[in-house]
Amino acid sequence: MRSGDQLVLLLIIGIIGIALFMGLRSRLNKSAQSKWVLVPDEEIPVTDAVALLENAGYEVMTTKRKIPIRMLVDDQEELFSRYFVDHFAQSEDKWYVVKIARSRNPFEMRGSSIRDQLLPYQLIYLEAAGVLYVDVSLQKIVKIQFELEI
């Protein structure tokens, strides 16, 4: 090998090293950022729940959203289910997952009920400031914020 060849080889190795470093840094930055973005709907039908939220100072951002869930049981049986979010709403710089009370699915304001029925929404949308539970029949909005003590 000539002396010039060694310099070219070192340059190539340096360029490859820098490219790998930049690619790894970019990938780490992307994984740290949220992959989910709240895209507001252009038009929100005004229902009793939407009116209640707006009168309380919230801006309703979306209509109902479906969250599909695929589950693999024992590495072979594939099951499907879904969660539904009634709305996303914003107040100041914070946004919330909105669940509307249903008469066919009564809800008790107890720790275990809140955990079982509403915590999954907070865990799905970690960026949310909390969950708004809207009971139109009582004209009530309950803001629930979760703190995990790990």
Rank of each mutant, 00 (worst) to 15 (best):
Arg115Pro: 01
Lys99Val: 12
Ile69Lys: 08
Val73Pro: 10
Val142Pro: 01
Gln139Ser: 14
Leu148Asp: 14
Asp116Glu: 07
Val73Phe: 10
Gly57Thr: 01
Met109Leu: 15
Gln122Thr: 07
Arg70Asn: 14
Ser81Pro: 08
Ser34Arg: 00
Lys35Asn: 13
Phe146Met: 00
Tyr58Ala: 05
Met22Gly: 05
Lys94Glu: 15
Asn55Tyr: 00
Leu24Trp: 15
Ile15Tyr: 04
Asp5Val: 05
Ser103Cys: 06
Phe80Arg: 13
Asp41His: 09
Ile100Phe: 03
Ala56Glu: 11
Arg27Lys: 11
Phe107Leu: 04
Ser103Ala: 15
Ser137Asp: 09
Gly14Ile: 05
Asn105Ile: 13
Arg25Val: 07
Thr47Gln: 03
Leu53Trp: 02
Ala128Arg: 03
Ile100Gln: 13
Leu126Thr: 12
Leu38Asn: 12
Lys99Thr: 02
Gln76Met: 15
Ile124Lys: 04
Leu11Gly: 08
Val97Arg: 03
Arg27Pro: 00
Leu126Cys: 01
Phe21Asn: 02
Ile150Arg: 08
Gln6Phe: 14
Val134Arg: 04
Met61Lys: 14
Leu28Ser: 02
Asp41Val: 11
Arg27His: 03
Glu78Ser: 07
Thr63Lys: 10
Val46Arg: 10
Ile141Val: 10
Ile114Gly: 04
Glu43Met: 04
Arg2Ile: 15
Gln145Val: 13
Glu108Asp: 10
Trp95Thr: 09
Phe21Arg: 01
Ser112Glu: 09
Gln33Trp: 06
Leu7Gly: 11
Arg110Lys: 12
Ala101Tyr: 08
Arg104Asp: 09
Met1Ala: 00
Ala129Val: 10
Ile124His: 07
Thr47Asn: 00
Glu59Phe: 08
Val50Gly: 02
His87Glu: 06
Gly130Glu: 02
Ala101Trp: 08
Ala128Gly: 06
Ala51His: 06
Ile15Trp: 08
Leu9Pro: 08
Tyr83Lys: 02
Leu53Glu: 00
Asn29Phe: 06
His87Lys: 01
Val39Met: 05
Glu149Ala: 14
Ala101Gln: 00
Gln139Asn: 15
